[in-house]
């Protein structure tokens, strides 16, 4: 699903984003990306969705070499990657339903079927009754569930979550985690960057630890810290 080969990213003038990172994430895996702030987690994610480009090395996502990806094709890459962020990134002027619909309309799918799909996915994340609410009328956990619904409505093969529980209390976080877990069960690869030690320790999934832009640990069923 994801393949990094000797990838280096330097932010001018000389801040190291990632340094010689090589790793391979299989289809259907659930992977935690851990590490302190500035360790390279965000750089990793931004490279994956081609927000930035690496200086050296190769990145292959879903069989596509991002280096040779034409810029007009980037939107199509992103439609195959669902993204969930710490700050939810919802369009504040649209209802929960419209936010989910937006991801469908963008792909040219504004039919009756897609409306049904959007309603279904909102029900799936437990927000069927709040589909007409605007983001500022929803709690943090609810907003995050809308954003997950939006990320998953196209059934992308890859879902990236950047600190999705960073702003949420432990109980709400647990709900979000369960949601991501269920999404993973459908065969979608899930990559989650997080600071949430307890969560990582509880889930016992693959853990990739970054520090100073380097992979310092890659463990099949790891915890947040060294075992």
């Amino acid at each position: 699903m994801i393949k990094f080969e000797d990838v280096t990213k330097i932010y001018p003038p000389s801040t190291v984003g990632l340094e010689r990172v090589s790793l391979h994430i299989e289809k259907g895996e659930f992977v935690f990306l851990v590490g302190p702030s500035g360790s390279g987690k965000s750089t990793f994610i931004r490279l994956l969705i081609r927000e930035i480009e690496q200086d050296r090395g190769r990145i292959i996502v879903g069989g596509r070499d991002l280096d040779t990806l034409r810029s007009w094709k980037i939107p199509y890459l992103r439609r195959n990657i669902g993204c969930v962020f710490q700050d939810f990134k919802l369009l504040t002027n649209k209802t929960a339903f419209e936010n989910v619909m937006y991801a469908l309309v963008v792909t040219g799918n504004a039919t009756g079927a897609s409306k049904k799909k959007a309603a279904e996915i909102l029900a799936l994340v437990g927000l069927g009754h709040k589909s007409d609410s605007y983001p500022n009328e929803l709690s943090g956990g609810e907003q995050q569930r809308v954003s997950i619904a939006r990320a998953f409505v196209n059934h992308p093969p890859l879902l990236i979550a950047d600190e999705p529980t960073g702003n949420l209390d432990p109980d709400t976080s647990m709900g979000i985690m369960q949601l991501l877990y269920r999404i993973n069960k459908t065969g979608t690869t899930v990559l989650m960057a997080t600071h949430d030690r307890e969560m990582v320790d509880r889930m016992r999934r693959r853990v990739i630890a970054l520090d100073n832009g380097k992979v310092v640990r890659d463990q099949k069923r790891g915890g947040y810290g060294e075992d």
């Binding site: 992103r78 990134k89 963008v106 939006r150």
Partner: peptide, 15 residues
């Protein structure tokens, strides 16, 4: 921010 989100969801520039 709005434009940024649109891009993240995979909207083309013309969209």
């Amino acid at each position: 921010r709005e434009v940024e989100i649109m891009k993240l969801v995979g909207a083309t520039n013309w969209f």
